[in-house]
């Protein structure tokens, strides 16, 4: 597969898309872990939800 005289532009655009998508995924995953950790911390310190169910578990 030859990319012609403008190979660098094609490769750069694909790389940039991959980079931004990976940043998005990483940000969302990191945010998720952070919120879960904070919820567990709060539960451990004795704060409960009004419904009485655990806040950190998903079901």
């Amino acid at each position: 597969m030859s990319l012609g005289p403008y190979a660098s532009f094609i490769v750069w655009s694909y790389l940039l898309v991959a980079l931004v998508v990976l940043i998005l995924i990483g940000w969302i995953a990191l945010d998720y872990r952070q919120q879960r950790a904070r919820l567990r911390e709060l539960e451990a310190s004795g704060v409960t939800r009004r419904s009485g169910r655990g806040a950190a578990d998903l079901s």
């Binding site: 969302i28 945010d31 998720y32 919120q35 879960r36 904070r38 919820l39 709060l42 539960e43 939800r49």
Partner: peptide, 15 residues
């Protein structure tokens, strides 16, 4: 996934 984060963030805020 981002919506799930947002819901958890609101729970943290409420707690």
């Amino acid at each position: 996934a981002a919506m799930r984060n947002e819901i958890l963030r609101r729970r943290v805020r409420a707690l």
